[in-house]
């Protein structure tokens, strides 16, 4: 939306911050992009609150190993470090992708999406291999309350990453089919918010489960 010059208005009706302050009611309705991002941000926060319940459960149950393997015996901090790097660079690639499509550099956009997908899939593969190794050692989710909490918490994050990867594939297909349309760009913006928010949850996970747990 291109705003008309505000000088046409009677001076008394112009708030001091009218030009930029759509969020405060001045300068007309907020851009759809801002409203959509706000709605999606509310969803992300509700998702984070759901995670907080599982974090609380893990924090309460992390010592209840029922004679089974403990966090210190099970977790490999270096493994978690590689997973963290995958997610961080995936997030970075996602951000650069968002910049590229804004600047109409479609080749760079597809390359960034590919990098985002490959790094995310690598993360997921590492996590699945970790889970498989633990279950093979008899440390599955049914072994102890600690492991039930661990698998639900980390597994739920893994499910989110899986959904994110599927969403990314759909978005790339949509960009290829529809081009740079307004609604496509808004959905892409929501996807990048989702992908970055997963990083925030992973940081909490890494710290509580792996770094503090494996000490």
């Amino acid at each position: 939306m291109t705003r008309a010059p505000l000088t046409d208005l009677p001076m008394t009706e112009i708030p001091a911050n009218a030009v930029t302050a759509t969020g405060r009611g001045g300068g007309g309705p907020a851009p759809v992009r801002i409203v959509v991002a706000y709605g999606f941000w509310i969803f992300l926060l509700s998702d984070i609150i759901m995670f907080s319940a599982l974090f609380a459960a893990y924090a309460v149950l992390s010592g209840e190993t029922a004679g089974g393997p403990t966090a210190r015996e099970l977790f490999d901090v270096r493994h978690a470090g590689i997973e963290t790097l995958c997610l961080l660079f995936s997030s970075y690639a996602c951000g650069i992708g968002a910049l590229s499509i804004e600047r109409r550099r479609m080749g760079a956009f597809y390359a960034c999406c590919a990098a985002t997908f490959i790094l995310g899939a690598t993360f997921l593969a590492l996590e699945v291999s970790e889970f498989a190794g633990m279950i093979a050692r008899g440390a599955g989710p049914s072994r102890s309350a600690f492991l039930s909490a661990f698998f639900s918490l980390v597994g739920l994050h893994g499910v989110h990453v899986t959904i994110g990867l599927l969403w990314l594939v759909f978005m790339v297909a949509q960009v290829a089919a529809q081009g740079r349309k307004e609604f496509v760009l808004r959905r892409l913006h929501c996807f990048s918010l989702f992908w970055h928010a997963l990083d925030i949850i992973w940081i909490a996970l890494l710290t509580l489960v792996y770094l503090i747990g494996a000490r």
Binding site: M1, G28, P29, A30, P31, V32, R33, I34, V35, G81, T84, L85, L88, F89, S91, Y92, G95, I96, A98, L99, E102, E182, H189, D199, I203, L206
Partner: peptide
């Protein structure tokens, strides 16, 4: 109203600085 507002969301410098800080903190 509000459709078509093309506000840039970030910059290469911003994302790179974010990545650098995140790597340092990790």
């Amino acid at each position: 109203p509000g459709v078509g507002a093309d506000a840039p969301t970030g910059s290469l410098l911003g994302y790179s600085a974010g990545l650098l800080f995140a790597l340092l903190l990790t």
